[in-house]
């Protein structure tokens, strides 16, 4: 059972590492606002969303089977009773690596979201100006 946990942690690490690389590449596309390339990223991301859900379902099932229902991975890795010190090291090291990757991914997402938020603010401001300009034009006409 603990081998399955180790395997899942490795799979999650690989998954988020790959997704983080995609999101980091997407930043340059966001900065230049290349909509065609942005659409390409959207297509690339879709299968990741599905796979993330699949991996989460696996994680939940495994945690349930280990007797840690509704616990997050951090708690499971901390609380689980290991048979050997080697097993403990293997899983905690793998988890540390996963945590670092997820923190990097989180940072990348925050940076991308800041850019998206900034664009949206500009667009809303432009839309308001457009509406006001139209209202003013009508006033002039009338």
């Amino acid at each position: 059972m603990l081998n399955k946990l180790a395997d899942l942690i490795e799979e999650l690490t690989e998954f988020y590492s790959e997704l983080n690389a995609i999101e980091a590449r997407k930043r340059s596309v966001l900065i230049t606002l290349d909509l065609n390339k942005l659409n390409e990223f959207e297509h690339k991301e879709q299968p990741f969303v599905l796979r993330a859900r699949g991996l989460e379902a696996q994680r939940k099932e495994l945690c349930n089977n280990l007797g840690y229902k509704d616990k997050n991975l951090e708690d499971v890795v901390k609380e689980i009773i290991y048979k050997t010190e080697e097993e403990k090291q293997k899983i905690t090291n793998a988890y540390s690596e996963l945590k670092e990757i997820i923190l990097n991914f989180h940072q990348t997402m925050e940076e991308n979201n800041k850019i998206i938020k900034s664009y949206n603010e500009h667009l809303e401001s432009y839309a308001n100006k457009l509406n006001n300009a139209t209202a003013n034009n009508l006033d002039v006409i009338l």
Partner: peptide
């Protein structure tokens, strides 16, 4: 055009679900 542009830019939010799952997993 503005609505379309906003939609296209926000489509980058697809992975927000993944980010949330990941954050919950490590208790972030």
């Amino acid at each position: 055009k503005i609505i379309r542009l906003k939609g296209e830019i926000e489509s980058g939010q697809y992975v927000v679900d993944c980010a949330k799952l990941a954050a919950d997993m490590i208790n972030l």
